[in-house]
Simulated scan of single mutants.
Amino acid sequence: MPKFAIKLVYLGRGFHGWQKQPKLRTVQGELESSLERLFNLQIKVVGASRTDAGVSAEGQVASFSIPRGDFTPKRLSSVLESFLPKDIHIVDAVVVPDSFSARFSAYGKLYIYTLASHRMPLDPAVQPVRLTNKLNLSLIPRIKRAFIGEHNFSAFSKSSSTEKDSTRLIFHFDIIPQGELLRLVVVGESFLQYMVRGIAGATLACLQGHISPENISEMLTTGKRSYHFRTLPPEGLLLKKVFYSREKLASIVNWLKQNPTVDRRLDEMLAGI
């Protein structure tokens, strides 16, 4: 049975997350249902990231095997997309080895969290959280230094998480003002549930003067949420890229360090699976 990986784009507001759940509309559920109608067979789909309800993706990757050998990646993309709902799009597909797993073969992920000024008309595709208070942008370098590296992210993730080890490695973190937008770019090896939203919430609280960069460093050491900040809503979060090459991951991190921006050049560099 040939195995494929596909790259998906979807808006999170229409789904109860990635993971299949009884009687709830999810991305995995829609994809498996479409594959079953196409091949008249139940096919298990593995996703790179179990995005939460409301979280969008431009770079989600799913892997699965199909019972027929007459499908090229291009044909599979075209035919499968005709079975999918209009709010899920396939933007790339490749044949992968049997050993490939969209989740466990990944070396890292890139997320972007978007915040917007209250003066900016909202783009429903971006769904950013509103900024209502003046921000102290001079704190950005200290906040970035606090998060980069290997830390205990218990204080920034879901309190009821069942993960035994809350240590995670952040390769790159940036806070980028772009006009009326503030974008948080996070590249890490792997992430706990709600972790990026927790990082975004602590960053915003720090920029607003409610906590300090030193408070963030303390929580990353102790793993305890000793200072108040809120986990920001899922609507501002975007899964931008999943990396399956260490070389590609390193090159993107180096590029981001030299080009602190989110624009078309980054999109071009992140093309493909």
Score class of each variant (00 low, 15 high):
2 P>Y: 14
6 I>Y: 05
6 I>R: 03
14 G>W: 03
14 G>K: 05
14 G>V: 00
18 W>F: 14
25 R>F: 10
31 L>A: 08
31 L>S: 05
32 E>L: 10
33 S>I: 00
38 L>T: 10
38 L>A: 10
40 N>Y: 11
43 I>Q: 04
47 G>P: 01
47 G>T: 08
48 A>T: 05
48 A>S: 15
49 S>C: 14
50 R>T: 01
55 V>P: 00
57 A>V: 04
57 A>C: 06
57 A>Y: 00
58 E>S: 13
59 G>T: 10
62 A>R: 01
63 S>C: 08
63 S>G: 03
63 S>P: 00
65 S>I: 09
70 D>N: 15
70 D>C: 06
74 K>V: 12
75 R>A: 13
76 L>Q: 00
77 S>L: 11
80 L>Y: 12
82 S>L: 03
83 F>I: 03
86 K>E: 15
89 H>Y: 07
91 V>L: 11
95 V>Y: 07
97 P>C: 05
102 A>H: 01
104 F>V: 02
106 A>I: 02
108 G>S: 12
112 I>T: 02
113 Y>G: 04
113 Y>V: 09
114 T>Y: 05
116 A>C: 14
117 S>N: 08
119 R>I: 13
124 P>A: 10
125 A>G: 05
127 Q>L: 10
132 T>G: 00
133 N>W: 07
136 N>L: 01
138 S>L: 10
143 I>D: 02
144 K>N: 08
144 K>I: 04
145 R>P: 00
147 F>D: 02
147 F>C: 04
147 F>V: 11
149 G>P: 03
151 H>A: 04
154 S>T: 15
157 S>D: 01
158 K>A: 11
158 K>Q: 13
159 S>E: 15
162 T>Q: 09
164 K>A: 15
171 F>E: 08
171 F>Q: 03
172 H>E: 07
172 H>L: 10
177 P>V: 12
179 G>L: 13
181 L>N: 00
183 R>F: 01
183 R>G: 00
184 L>T: 04
187 V>K: 06
188 G>N: 09
190 S>T: 13
191 F>S: 08
191 F>N: 06
194 Y>C: 02
195 M>V: 02
196 V>K: 01
197 R>D: 04
197 R>S: 03
198 G>V: 06
198 G>W: 04
199 I>E: 03
200 A>D: 05
203 T>F: 03
204 L>Y: 05
205 A>D: 09
212 S>E: 13
212 S>W: 09
213 P>R: 09
214 E>I: 12
216 I>W: 12
221 T>A: 14
223 G>H: 13
225 R>Q: 14
228 H>R: 15
229 F>W: 12
232 L>K: 04
234 P>H: 11
234 P>T: 15
236 G>A: 07
237 L>T: 06
242 V>S: 13
245 S>H: 08
246 R>M: 08
248 K>F: 01
250 A>T: 09
254 N>M: 06
254 N>Q: 12
257 K>Q: 13
257 K>N: 12
258 Q>W: 02
258 Q>M: 12
261 T>F: 01
261 T>P: 01
262 V>N: 00
262 V>F: 09
263 D>N: 15
264 R>C: 07
264 R>T: 10
264 R>Y: 10
267 D>T: 10
268 E>I: 14
268 E>H: 09
269 M>G: 01
270 L>M: 04
